[in-house]
């Protein structure tokens, strides 16, 4: 099985080498540098992996799509989306891709809230994430326990059908809606996320809503 690990990267010189080394053993690492202004790009290049460069900052969704297209073109059987800030735990990759290897599903989504050791900050969990999950489930008619968790794995079937058009952070919601649209089989597996920063706030959430609304109007 040819596995590609897609890591969008923006100004992560502090973490990028550590993250690359932690995932290297699980497949071909593809870093998509989204026009970093620090030396993330050079650091990644020195690791002897595939590094794609966006000459203009386009957002995390756009970076993932660039990595996905590269992987698809180079015969990927499995693609893993992984964050560059060290929030995800690479040791959980085998657990994440297991349902794909067994041929049970097309896409595996990591979920923070299936895990009893979840360490999501209280305000973020109950005032931002949980309402967002509820809203997403009502809107899309799915039953997910997490939203906007960037740790996920796709098989070739899902990869060839899913084209991320949301350049910014709304891509996570878009991916969920694409699962529904293409009737892909999915499963959630518990993963841990360690929080370095607060991440998406309320304003970020509003931006995502705005992006989704305009994408419907501007097809």
């Amino acid at each position: 099985m040819k596995t590609f690990i897609i890591i969008p990267c923006l100004n992560e010189s502090e973490n990028i080498v550590k993250v690359i080394n932690s995932v290297k053993e699980y497949g071909q690492v593809v870093i998509v540098d989204d026009c970093s202004i620090d030396n993330s790009y050079e650091l990644a290049l020195n690791q002897g992996i595939v590094v794609l460069k966006h000459y203009i900052n386009r957002g995390q969704g756009a970076s993932l799509e660039t990595g996905d297209r590269y992987a698809l073109k180079h015969g990927a059987d499995i693609v893993i989306h992984f964050d560059s800030d060290g929030q995800h735990n690479s040791l959980e990759i085998p657990k994440l891709i297991e349902p794909l290897l067994l041929g049970k599903v097309d896409i595996v989504l990591g979920s923070r809230f299936l895990n009893s050791t979840d360490s999501t900050p209280f305000i973020k969990k109950y005032f931002i994430l949980k309402p967002a999950i509820l809203f997403q489930n009502i809107l899309l008619g799915l039953n997910l326990t997490d939203t906007h968790n960037g740790f996920r794995a796709l098989n070739r079937n899902a990869l060839s059908k899913m084209h991320i058009k949301q350049d910014g952070m709304a891509h996570a919601t878009e991916i969920v809606s694409l699962i529904k649209e293409h009737d892909l089989k999915y499963v959630e597996v518990p993963v841990t996320v360690s929080y370095n920063e607060f991440g998406q706030g309320f304003i970020g959430g509003l931006q995502i809503l705005k992006d989704l609304l305009f994408s419907k109007l501007n097809k």
Binding site: L52, H54, I56, A62, T66, R69, K165, L217, N218
Partner: peptide
Amino acid sequence: LYLKADKQQKEITKLVRHLALNER
């Protein structure tokens, strides 16, 4: 105008992606 700007943003993304993949 907003819709037009949004469309142009998407076109820029396509170009940037094309450039990134081609360069590789």
